[in-house]
């Protein structure tokens, strides 16, 4: 029973929250509203999965939101200028990947702790985003070939959800069923043991941070397509949400470890919670307060399970 609770307790709490809102407010459990929550979950979860991949190698990527904003602005600028959609999308993904690789090199080659390196990258990305837009947003009547990436639906399921399913399934298989994935996890679990067993731990850290950047780029493309605009701070609100999703996700399924399914369930729970609070008439700032409590509470909950993992040392600044 104790094992059951420590493995599924927070997931069940999330379910309870969803049921509570469904009962408490009739507007919550409507197909329209659930579809909104799922779409919001998609942005959040794709961004959060990147953070999770970096965290699996025991590195923190605090640049995800600013990198996503920069990638969105680059994509938006190209779409706005009438460039082909594929070029705009590739540029957004490329910008994210480039930032992620820069983070990886700073951590592995320059030996800068990821906490510092990614904060630096975040500042640079933010500056570049404002430089490109000169502080205003790109808004326009953008081609449906671009906006359709995020707006349409297939078989009654929003495209955004399909993107999330594809990305999450790929990452799940990668992490749990491939050699490279297990090397990534081993790097974060026990870097020295992994290195002595012949695993190229520096390469794994670059991979984790690089993928985090790439997924920030992917989130950015979908965000820009979804709202037909690109502003230099558009992903900022997702930052704490993404971190909360990963940390809350670490309290479920494989307690104490960043994991794909936990991140997905946590992302949905957080978005359902935010949505439900608004429907109940809570002020906008209540969300932030709840989010902060969840971040601290999640880590407290999985502290026992995390104690022996390398990334706890990172989280407690002992880089």
């Amino acid at each position: 029973m104790r094992h059951f609770l420590s493995t599924y307790g927070t997931a069940l709490a999330g379910l309870a929250i969803v049921i509570f809102f469904a009962v408490a407010t009739p507007a919550f459990a409507t197909p329209g509203n659930l579809s909104i929550i799922l779409k919001e979950t998609s942005f959040l979860a794709i961004l959060a999965l990147g953070f999770a991949l970096a965290l699996m190698t025991a590195e923190l990527d605090l640049s995800i939101a600013e990198v996503a904003s920069l990638a969105a602005v680059i994509t938006g600028a190209l779409v706005h200028a009438g460039q082909p959609v594929w070029i705009a999308v590739a540029a957004g993904l490329g910008a994210g990947l480039l930032c992620g690789v820069a983070n990886g090199l700073a951590v592995t080659s320059l030996r800068v702790p990821s906490l510092i390196a990614t904060l630096g990258t975040a500042a640079v990305a933010k500056g570049l985003a404002f430089m490109i837009t000169q502080g205003v947003a790109f808004v326009g009547r953008w081609p449906t070939g671009f906006t359709g990436l995020a707006r349409g639906s297939l078989l009654g399921v929003p495209n955004l959800v399909w993107w999330l399913v594809g990305v999450a399934a790929t990452i799940f298989v990668f992490v749990n069923w491939t050699r490279a994935g297990s090397h990534l996890v081993a790097t974060g679990e026990a870097e020295e043991a992994a290195r002595l067993a012949g695993i190229r731990t520096a390469r794994m850290k670059r991979l984790g941070l690089g993928l985090s950047g790439l997924l920030a780029g992917g989130t950015a493309v979908l965000l820009a397509a979804s709202v037909s605009s690109a502003a230099p701070n558009m992903a900022g609100d997702h930052f704490l949400y993404a971190i909360a999703a990963v940390l809350l996700g670490m309290t479920m399924f494989t307690p104490g470890k960043p994991n794909v399914i936990g991140t997905l369930v946590a992302a949905f729970t957080l978005k359902a919670l935010g949505n439900g609070l608004i429907l109940l008439g809570a002020a906008y700032y209540v969300q932030d307060i709840v989010l902060g409590l969840i971040i601290v509470g999640s880590v407290a909950l999985s502290a026992a399970a995390m104690r022996r993992a390398a990334f706890v040392k990172k989280l407690s600044f002992r880089t």
Binding site: R179, A186, A190, A194, L196, I199, K257
Partner: peptide, 19 residues
Amino acid sequence: DLALAPRLSIAQNVFLGSE
């Protein structure tokens, strides 16, 4: 002390780096 990854399974540790 460095040989094993404590939270990984027996099988994962035996095949660490050579899965």
